[in-house]
Write a protein that binds this DNA or RNA. Structure first.
Lengths: 190, 190
DNA sequence: TTGACAAATTAGCGTCGCTAGATTATTTAG
DNA sequence: CTAAATAATCTAGCGACGCTAATTTGTCAA
């Protein structure tokens, strides 16, 4: 019988609506406006229903963040120009990363700042969380001996640039220069 | 008459007690535990008294953060070994910065993650907010043409390392290697 | 048709940041 | 020295939060 199939389908559709609503509200009004009450209203169910999908509010943020990691990975891979030099590829990825961070600040916040309950570096870590790292590793590899460590450091530099600029700590007008600097640093010719 | 002096003195002492209490609770139980109610109890005054010292909770976090910036600046300057080479000095500062971030995570969070209402890069920006940057600029200057931009980038790299490690995104065991990498990158010999 | 089980709701607990209005001190003026 | 004015502080409470217990409603099998 297809009844139970329909039910699980409807259930997962409802879950998607929760995630979409959370993301939409966060991007428009910030994460502080993403409350259980407001999400419940949005999906036209009572509040306790949300707790049959997610353990708590953090896990809803986590679900949005997980989407974000998937999208970031796609964007980074797509940014790597096929005819670019190794050095240009580093710049491609760096620029794409920061563009993502500034174009979707709420999403970026969910992915890297807010508590999400997501587990990294574990056996059950979802692939989305690894893919972005993989894209970075691809462009860093030509310049590094220890690729993992170099990629971690590259990623940290980008994350720091994103966060400090997002918080008004460094000058937005000099973003391109900073990227150039990181590129030169990675390719070893400061 | 010294009466009004005594009053303003007592008032600023009370303000200090608020800040100290906020910092203490944050370092022990996290910023979520720093509530107006708990602070009021700690200083043995009613809640509205806090609002005669600070506009809102964020500004209390900001007051703690401001202290943190002052302390970080001192620590960074003290870390610069007088007989160190230019390259070693970069490592000194980088290590001291990350030690600070990991030794006082709540303080670091107040300074760089939480909303604080602090204004950067303005005419009325307090000196504490500039000093740490100055210490970094000192050790970066020998390697850079545009010192400000290079310092921003160096700072961003450190901040990214601190944040990603704090959130379990990169491997704690490889912290030293990452610092080495940044050092090599800054001094141009990857 | 009824009884078991699942799905969803209502209602509410404890907590939060923040504030209006009342109360108690302190200063100033007559 | 008293009374009015002002400052300092408190009590009480508003609206909103995350979350959950207890109840009602819906759905299926015997």
């Amino acid at each position: 019988m297809g009844i139970s199939e329909r039910k699980t389908r409807e259930r997962s559709e409802r879950e998607r609506r929760i995630i979409v609503a959370a993301r939409t509200i966060a991007e428009r009004d910030g994460w502080a406006s993403v409350t259980i009450r407001r999400l419940a209203e949005e999906i036209e169910y009572s509040q306790p229903v949300l707790y049959s999908h997610f353990e708590n509010r953090d896990q809803i943020v986590g679900a949005v963040a997980l989407e974000g990691f998937g999208e970031l990975a796609v964007i980074l891979r797509a940014a790597i120009g096929p005819s670019s030099t190794a050095k240009e590829r580093v710049e491609d990825v760096a620029t794409a990363y920061l563009d993502f961070a500034f174009a979707r600040p709420a999403m970026y916040e969910a992915m890297f700042v807010l508590p999400t309950g997501l587990r990294f570096a574990r056996s059950d870590t979802p692939p989305q969380l690894r893919d972005g790292f993989g894209a970075m590793a691809t462009v860093i590899a030509p310049f590094a001996q220890d690729v993992d460590t170099a990629t971690e450091t590259f990623w940290a530099a980008l994350h720091g640039l994103a966060e400090l600029e997002r918080h008004g700590r460094i000058r937005p007008a000099f973003r391109a220069q900073r990227i150039t600097l990181i590129m030169r640093m990675v390719s070893g010719q400061l």
